[in-house]
Design a protein around this nucleic acid. Structure first.
Length: 417
RNA sequence: GCGGGUGUAGCUCAGUUGGUUAGAGCGCCAGUUUGUGGCACUGGAGGUCGCCGGUUCGAAACCGGUCACUCGCCCCA
């Protein structure tokens, strides 16, 4: 630690960055509410099994990316690397399997021990929705539509492409996996080093390899679609039909595979090319097996998560809170009067700042640069008369008003625009 | 975890083949204006040249290591 800096892969959210984050989160919360999703939150850490059991041993998220620690009571805990497992755990813990279906929205920090890059942090923030207890294909379509609306409301949908694929149910996946492994084993010698490893651990991941030799080999590989059974095909077709009916454009992507083991059927990602290698901005899918993996009953689920940092980069800046008026004491003896009037204005619902440093000119300069619209100037003569000079910094005009009329005068002017 | 690039003031960046007190713009502070912002002018503060070590008479510059950021791989949001 040389020169006090935040831990690797973490960063401070100063007001400008915080404003962009808040815009993303609030937009997503509102859009989700339009679809009937209610906000909830789970703890930032859980017993390690909550993540290790469902995510699967082959997943990098578990094998090397989690922050694990033991607390003073000897419990093995993990900082959440994602929130779906936590939400499903909460459903089971709270006996909510009696009140299905459930539609939840969440927002909060996640933690993965990875090599940081732009759009990839060790502490990052996700927003997401989970639709529990609904197996209908329309549930898949609804959450995708909700994701599209979040992106549209943020003004970034036109910079994203929706990729969709079906992984089929557990049976299809198993049969396809066998066929793929058989095929790739014949070409093992020509695969990239990464893919040789994946062949043994998580062969489906080879499908979206960026290695050119891998891609060449994959052109002759068996295709996932050919291994989907009838129920899986019907499910996927119904999802596509619904998206189509609602005018949500998507691109079938047979090579789209999700890393986490609990995914089945629909998998999708909204991808942008504006963010370099970290192009996935919102992604998710169906996870019907997850509840059982956690030791609960078989409960269907679909959901997605989106990266707040990535979306914030696309959105740009949010709105900073700027006070509507600043109460400026023209001379030191008026400080208390300025403070008292400021409190009155706040009681009337206005946001008020009181600049404290420098002479009057400096204070005026400071509030002007901060973008404050009005200055309420008060000095000895105003105190005697019970008035305030109301200066409009945008229009450049000034008027003396009785203190009792100040709040309503400001509100009137603000409403005029 | 693997490979490439970069690190000089709060920010964006100059800095000659190694040479004396390391610069600019913006920002910040102060003054011109002792009850009034934007504009202009004048002045000022602010730098362990990321850090440690090495080469050299001499290092911001060259070499090694390290930390951080960044691009790609991996993985994913």
């Amino acid at each position: 630690m040389s020169r006090l800096q935040p831990a690797r892969g973490t960063s401070d959210l100063l007001p400008a960055a915080m404003a962009a984050h808040r815009k993303v989160i609030e937009t997503a919360r509102d859009a989700s509410a339009h679809y009937g999703f209610q906000e909830m939150a789970t703890p930032i850490f859980e017993f390690s099994e909550v993540f290790s059991r469902p995510l699967g041993d082959s997943s990098d998220v578990v094998t090397k990316e989690t922050y694990n620690f033991t607390d003073r009571g000897g419990e093995t805990l993990t900082l959440r690397p994602e929130n779906t497992a936590g939400v499903v755990r909460a459903m089971i813990s709270n006996g909510l399997t009696q009140s299905l279906p459930l539609k939840y929205f969440y927002a909060g920090p996640m933690f993965r021990y990875e090599r940081p890059q732009k759009g990839r942090m060790r502490q990052f923030h996700q927003i997401g929705i989970e639709y529990l207890g609904a197996f209908e294909p329309l549930a898949d379509a609804e959450i995708i539509a909700c994701g599209a609306r979040v992106l549209a409301d943020l003004g970034v949908l036109d910079r994203c492409v929706l990729h969709v694929n079906s992984l089929g149910d557990a049976k299809c996946r198993l049969s396809y996996r066998g066929a793929l492994v058989a095929f790739l084993t014949q070409h093992r010698a020509d695969l990239s080093e990464d893919s040789k490893v994946r062949l043994g651990v998580n062969p489906l991941r080879i499908l979206d390899s960026k290695d050119l030799r891998d891609r060449e080999i994959l052109r002759g590989a068996p295709r996932l679609q050919d291994h989907l059974n009838d129920p899986s095909k019907a499910h996927f077709a119904a999802v596509i039909e619904a998206l189509d009916a609602a005018g949500i454009k998507c691109q079938l992507d047979p090579l789209l595979v999700r890393g986490l083991d609990y995914y089945c059927h629909t998998a999708f990602e909204f991808i942008t090319d504006a963010l370099g290698a970290q192009g996935t901005v919102l992604g998710g899918g169906r996870y019907d097996g997850l509840s059982e993996m956690l030791g609960g009953p078989a409960i269907a689920g679909v959901g997605w998560a989106a990266g707040v940092e990535r979306l914030a980069m696309l959105v740009g800046v949010g709105d900073l809170a700027v006070p509507q008026i600043a109460m400026v004491a023209a001379e030191p003896l008026a400080k208390v009067a300025a403070f008292r009037v400021a409190e009155d204005l706040r009681s009337a619902g206005l946001s008020v700042d009181i600049p404290v440093s420098g002479n009057m000119g400096k204070k005026m300069k400071k509030i002007d640069r901060a973008g404050v619209r009005f200055a309420g100037i008060i000095g000895g003569s105003e105190i005697d008369k019970g008035t305030v000079q109301l200066r409009d910094l945008r229009e450049g005009n000034q008027e003396e008003l009785a203190q009792s009329r100040l709040a309503s005068a400001i509100i009137t002017r603000l409403n005029r625009g």
